[in-house]
Amino acid sequence: MRTRYRMERRALLTGGTALALTAVAGARVPLAQTLDKVSFQTNWRAQAEHGGYYQAVAAGIYRRHGIECEIRMGGPQQNPAQLLLAGRVDFIMSNGFQALNYVREGLPFLTVGAIMQKDPQVLMTHEGNGINSFEDMKGRPILIGASGRVTYWPFLKAKFGFTDEQIRPYTFNVGPFLADRMAIQQGFISSEPFAAQQAGARPRVFLIADAGYQNYQTTIDVSQRMVNEKKDLVQRFVNATIEGWSAYMKGQDVAGANAAIKRDNPEMDDAKIAYAVQVMNQAGIVASGDALTMGIGAMTEARWKSFYEGMRDVGRYPAGLDYAKAYSLEFVNKRVGLA
């Protein structure tokens, strides 16, 4: 089922002619000049959670930055990180864990921007059943998928005293959740709660990021070689992407982007897209924290350090890992899109 793979995708290990132009933040390139062609691989089928990239294409933002961007839609049989490592794509959508994996494996790839300041992963239960906090979930059965067990679950164990004995297999549909008013299951804030609502439930949602889980999501990953050899192109791609996300989250002329999302993924409809954008805005998934002052895509050394140390302390990564190699702050924190 679609939901099955959708929830697993975050944990997957997980070109062109140069323009004669000096790179500056937010630079616009005349359309008459040759466009640099790049490919961007998403981590799943088209959806509102990818909206900023589609907006940058549909609204001509990439082209104004001298780029012809091909969005390649992900799916259950694709591993974006493997495609990047093999040189089959220029940029991929990923997450903080993948960036640290590059370092652990000695691979010359890194993250150059983080679109989602908050990981959209949630635990959800039913309103009115007495489960009102993460603390109330201690000792209770929780439906968790395989990827969650190696990403956010160690954080929950350390933070709230959860144990592996609480884990129950996640069936990747809301059926068991609907059948049990005491059920607790994983989900994304922009997806599973909507499905539960459509089935008549009243889900209560707990965003793990709001409990201190610091994983960056929907990151932009690229090879170190491309950063070294085409720095101007990487900067223009990041700037254009940020502008696309800024417009999309504000709902500025997004009809073209949404039409492209629905074209690529017929499972999407206007109601699903509208719900996802609404809750992402309400929860500050894209625009919160550092992004409010430094612009969408913002990252900081302090946050990366905290994320690595937290995952190191729960045994996810070894001590002494040179986590600073996982990312570059050179291309973000420039207040692009804030005006």
Rank of each mutant, 00 (worst) to 15 (best):
L100Y: 09
I61R: 02
E70H: 04
K272S: 13
E267D: 15
R4T: 13
N258C: 07
Q33H: 09
M124H: 13
L178S: 02
Q121I: 12
A179M: 13
S306R: 14
M294D: 09
I208K: 04
D264T: 08
P30K: 12
F206L: 07
K250Y: 02
E243R: 13
R303G: 03
V89P: 09
L21T: 15
G16N: 09
V122P: 00
D264H: 09
N79D: 15
W44I: 03
Y323N: 05
L329K: 07
E229P: 03
P176L: 07
M311V: 03
T219N: 04
Y308F: 13
I296A: 00
S39L: 02
A195H: 14
T111C: 13
R149E: 12
A298R: 10
I92R: 08
A271R: 14
V286F: 10
Y102M: 09
A27Q: 14
R202I: 01
S306M: 06
M1Q: 11
F177C: 05
D180G: 02
W44T: 14
Y308N: 07
D269P: 11
L21M: 12
L110D: 02
A99D: 10
Q117P: 01
K138E: 08
Q82D: 07
A99T: 11
R88N: 11
K37W: 00
I144D: 00
A302S: 14
L107E: 06
S39V: 10
L83W: 11
G284N: 05
A183I: 08
K231C: 05
A196L: 14
R168S: 05
K118S: 03
A319P: 08
Q186H: 03
V29N: 09
M93A: 12
K138P: 05
I92E: 06
A56N: 06
A199C: 04
T241A: 00
R202A: 10
F134K: 09
R140T: 06
Q217I: 01
E135N: 12
K305N: 13
E243Y: 02
Y152N: 04
I92K: 06
H126T: 00
G295C: 04
T14Q: 10
E8Y: 01
Q197R: 15
G113Q: 08
L35F: 08
W153M: 06
L207G: 08
F91A: 05
Q41F: 06
M268Q: 15
T241F: 01
Q214T: 11
Q166G: 07
E309Q: 15
F97N: 06
